[in-house]
Design a protein around this nucleic acid. Structure first.
Lengths: 300, 300
DNA sequence: CACACTTACGATATTCGTAAGGATT
DNA sequence: AATCCTTACGAATATCGTAAGTGTG
């Protein structure tokens, strides 16, 4: 038993037209093919649906019975296809992204704005959490895509480099280091240093590159705006990646690139391995790649 | 866009099996044909539904989305077909019959009992009304079949003779006419006569055959049981068709055939012309023809 | 190298349209 | 005579299965 939406459409066309020739035209079929089609439907269903004389076409009682059900079934069918097409054409959908707070505040909003402009029907969800949580969200299926720094070689995740985020010194305008065009890691030695919490990716990169490190910690805080406030108040200096520099645009502070090739924070796009992204998510993924974060001097 | 129930079944088979070979077997297809089928579904829908490596088959996010809808649609599809098949195979249905009271009380119950035994799922409806109302019910679509006496040549009705109902004299056992094996119309002259109401088909036939008639009316009543009671009480004689004789089985009464070839009440099966009966109704119609009322001497 | 999906390709079936046939108004 | 559905039949198309190809574990 195989009944198609086309069969239902043909049946309903004939119910409405009560005329094979016109109904056939509506179905883009020759009258002869249409006649055969109706006959095959009747054969499949095991009952005549139409009484036909050469002059009139009438539905049988069974035809009238079938009509109501056929309409319902076809309507659901069409709704199903249309709904699905909505997702397939990115007219509808949902994408959840987990991103580092720095990216969630700096780079991502622009990307998401562009995406929303192109696909206003797609719901966007954003988690601004640290790298480990980003990955956990992807693993749990709560996020389609993670934009994270830590990218271990895990077998269940597919990782793609997005950009390399270079570090910069931030210090008060009147600080001795502000006189240099750029600074080296060892130049920082001895200056009071404002650290981020150990859980942040920035801190982890710094410690990995400069252990035990030349920094002389005076504060250890969680949020970058706090760092900025402390620097503006003259409590010391700090080092942050380029993608967070937007926090430090201030007349009282200056930014200097850190000449330390080994210390770059690599940012990755992460997704589940072996499972394709939803069409909506793939669209955002592609857009992220096309609009990679601007890092380095240009972002100063 | 043409999606068939077979397509949905194939899709769901693959969702459940996550293996082309097994899913193909479930659909009675070669693995190759099945692969092509899935691909054509994906093409029609405009999105991939499965991620396939050579070793694993997984649904895409869109595939999972489609699954729920596909199950619903297929369930409705199957219900539609199964429901319809119920009607087509006479497992379900409804038939309404309008019949003359005499037939509704005498002959029809046996026919309907046989029909119900064969098709217990079909609802039966019976109107026991006079001929004109029988025809009106058929015209109004409230009855599928009428079993009536009056059968004018009307263009909207299709009429088929069912039987010829011959008339019989009924009189008290000790009545002079009881001595005869059979009687002629003119034999009735002068005897007190119990009539049925003018609206009954019996009366109309009698008047047409014997106007102004040899009868000497003493009563004009509506119901045959009343006639019987009057005859048993000795108020006169009457003439009724064979199919009503079951009302007159009484030790005080006798029945004698009326030798009057012109006077027979013809009983007809009536239905709308040009519209086929429902399958259920056609079944009852055929059974009625196969079990025509027994008339004449045999029914005495 | 064994398994599993895809691709190639010839065979088979189905479906299609033109044209002729038959019935009704 | 005109209209409308069915049937006939050759052609185009689709579908199927066998078998070879390809990638993965």
């Amino acid at each position: 038993m195989n009944l198609s939406s086309r069969d239902l459409r043909a049946f309903l066309a004939l119910v409405e037209e009560r005329n094979f020739t016109r109904a056939a035209a509506r179905c883009h079929l020759s009258q002869s093919a249409f006649s055969t089609l109706i006959r095959s439907i009747e054969r499949d269903l095991g009952a005549r649906l139409f009484d036909r004389t050469t002059r009139t076409v009438e539905t049988t009682p069974e035809g009238r019975l079938f009509e109501a059900s056929a309409r319902r079934a076809l309507a659901q069918f069409d709704a199903l296809v249309e709904d699905f097409r909505g997702y397939a054409t990115r007219a509808r959908g949902r994408v959840a992204v987990a991103a580092l707070p720095s990216l969630a505040a700096g780079w991502l909003p622009g990307v998401m704005t562009a995406f929303r402009a192109a696909h206003p029907g797609i719901d966007l969800e954003l988690f601004d959490v640290l790298s480990d949580q980003c990955l956990a969200l992807v693993r749990a299926g709560r996020a389609d895509i993670a934009v994270a720094a830590a990218a271990p070689q895990e077998p269940d995740l597919q990782v793609e480099a997005l950009c390399a985020d270079r570090f910069h010194l931030v210090c008060p305008r009147d600080h001795p280091l502000a006189a240099q065009e750029s600074v080296r890691l060892k130049d920082l030695t001895g200056y009071p240093f404002v650290h981020l919490a150990r859980t942040s990716s920035v801190r982890q990169h710094l410690e990995a590159a400069a252990h035990p490190g030349p920094m002389r910690p005076v504060f250890e805080v969680e949020q970058l705006p706090t760092v900025r406030a402390l620097l503006e108040a003259g409590f010391g200096i700090s080092v942050v990646p380029a993608l967070t520099l937007f926090h430090f645009r201030s007349p009282r502070l200056v930014v200097r690139p850190l000449r330390a090739p080994g210390i770059t924070r690599r940012i990755f796009l992460v997704r589940l391995r072996g499972r394709s992204l939803s069409i909506a998510a793939q669209g955002l993924y592609d857009l992220m790649r096309a609009r990679k974060p601007a890092t380095g001097a240009a972002a100063r």
